[in-house]
């Protein structure tokens, strides 16, 4: 009884380590593909379109909504201390340092990461990747690398747009609805946000999340079983693993570098 449990644990450990090794190999091949010619500009543009442009609407709407909530909540808390003018810096700092990069990463995982895993998984199931191999085209180079690269490139852009929409949302609630002086809202933003800490930290976070989501989604699609269940497992796996890892890595970055 006890022995079977130990055996099971051992089996799981070995399987986990071999998956980790497989993932590392995949990441290595992916990196290799990013620097090997030909450079697939057209594929990259197409992927920036599907990942970036098609996620734009949900990112902006969510950003605006989050900014408005922050405006309301912040106002309620700050009026207790008579510090309504600090609303600008409250909304701005919260969005730039945490909510912008993290929520964007979660939204993009759900919107585009799952789509990447599903698309590559379906290509595995319909032998399209083998089809590419038979044309002497490396499917990692043709399919996965442009997707991962586009993910890394678009994540900071989407995150910045999320933050700007959020600041706009906070402005609408704070200034238009709650009657805070527009000058003090903007002054609070400008006074509290530092480029080298806050903005750079924000961009760094979203780049790291972009790498994370890009690699996990392409890897899960690539290694999915060639059937419908495999595609669905790859999609779910991507969303779960990428979301949880995003939150954990966010904590690690914040704890280590204080951004």
């Amino acid at each position: 009884m006890f022995r079977s449990h130990v055996e099971k644990l051992g089996g799981r450990t070995i399987a986990g380590i071999s998956r980790l090794g497989q993932f590392t190999t995949f990441a290595g091949v992916l990196l290799d593909c990013l620097i090997t010619r030909p450079f697939r500009g057209r594929r990259l543009i197409d992927e920036v379109y599907t990942i970036g442009v098609l996620s734009l609407v949900i990112v902006c709407i969510s950003g605006g909504a989050v900014g408005m909530v922050l405006g309301l909540q912040g106002y309620t808390v700050l009026t207790r201390f008579g510090a309504e003018e600090a609303l600008g810096s409250f909304v701005g700092l919260t969005l730039i340092r945490e909510l912008g990069p993290v929520l964007t990463a979660l939204l993009v995982t759900g919107r585009a990461g799952s789509a990447i895993a599903a698309e590559i998984g379906a290509m595995v199931a319909t032998e399209q990747l083998d089809g590419l191999r038979m044309m002497s085209i490396d499917p990692t180079h043709y399919v996965a690398a442009p997707k991962a690269a586009a993910m890394v490139l678009t994540m900071p852009l989407l995150s910045a747009l999320f933050i700007v929409c959020g600041i706009g949302g906070g402005y609408v609630v704070g200034v238009q609805f709650l009657g805070i002086d527009p000058g003090s809202y903007l002054k609070g933003l400008e006074g509290s946000i530092k480029f080298s800490d806050d903005v750079m930290g924000s961009i760094t976070k979203s780049l790291v999340f972009g790498i994370l989501v890009g690699m996990i989604s392409t890897y899960r699609g690539y290694t999915s079983a060639p059937n419908a269940a495999g595609v669905s497992a790859a999609t779910t796996g991507t969303v779960v693993v990428a979301s949880v890892l995003t939150l954990i890595v966010d904590y690690i970055i914040t704890a280590l570098w204080g951004v």
Binding site: I45, V48, P156, L157, I163, V199
Partner: peptide
Amino acid sequence: VRDLIVGLFVIAGFTAIAYLSVSLGGL
């Protein structure tokens, strides 16, 4: 059309980053 949209998206994204960095971040 798609290229144009992608171009606009990239410009919008970088404008947002620039706004955060320069106008708010004081770069």
